[in-house]
Design a protein around this nucleic acid. Structure first.
Length: 215
DNA sequence: CGAATGATCGGCT
DNA sequence: GCCGATCATTCGA
């Protein structure tokens, strides 16, 4: 990563604000940069979901419960929270809020920006297409994110994973809001909170691509 | 210690 | 659209 990009790492103050839905929205268009021995890769965030602490039944931090898995969710905003889902997928979140709050933003899709070749090969595919990064598990594979990167400081330029303000000369258009994905068993209340954010006209977003309240 | 459960994905119909 | 893979994690006995 260039010196110029390093200067644009999102600062702590970006993450420690309230609430997570604001940050989830503002993370759209920002850039995740990862580095490993394999090389450097980067993607533009095009889809996010907010998870908010004790009152959000779908959040790992609901009811303020603390377990070995979710404890980094209570760290200060700007920390990475990576966990294994369905026994095989690494899901990447940016912790938000102050220490102890248990808020985070899940990154659900990115648009490849740097080193498509490495991302395609990590996904064991032949060519670049949205299937490389259009899901939370997929983008982690493409960017080389594993649970070993849980608890890292996303605001430290020396971290293997950081989020920068790409200052991209791009117009991303309208933002869709809708219910979060995978909430079918949370129909009680939190299931239909409109805490999923995505660019309406970007082909790199995940499925289901329809934003609906028909349930 | 055993059973149940996923903030998913990919293959198949 | 449906379904099985696959296992870390959590919870209860």
């Amino acid at each position: 990563m260039s010196k110029e990009q390093t200067r644009r790492v999102l600062p702590r103050s970006f993450y420690t604000r309230l609430d997570a839905t604001v940050i989830a929205r503002e993370l759209l268009g920002k850039v995740i940069v990862t580095s490993s021995e394999e090389g450097e890769t980067a993607g533009i965030i095009v889809e996010t979901e907010a998870y908010m602490g004790p009152d959000d039944l779908a959040c790992h931090a609901h009811s303020n419960r603390i377990t070995p898995r979710n404890k980094t969710m209570y760290d200060i905003g700007g920390t990475s929270y990576v966990y294994i889902c369905y026994g095989m997928h690494n899901l990447f979140n940016a912790v938000t809020g102050e220490e102890g709050m248990g808020h985070a933003v899940l990154i659900r899709a990115v648009e490849p920006l740097l080193n498509e070749t490495l991302m395609v090969s990590r996904r064991r595919k032949e060519k670049i297409s949205p299937v490389i990064t259009n899901g939370p598990g997929k983008l982690s594979t493409a960017l080389g994110i594993t649970k070993e990167w849980n608890g890292l400081d996303l605001t430290d330029p020396k971290s293997p994973i950081i989020i920068v303000d790409g200052s991209l000369d791009r117009e991303f258009g309208r933002i869709d809001e809708g219910p979060r994905v995978g909430m079918s068993h949370h129909t009680k209340n939190c299931g239909n909170f409109p805490w999923r954010f995505k660019y309406a006209d970007n082909k790199w977003t995940s499925k289901p691509d329809k934003v609906s309240y028909d349930w």
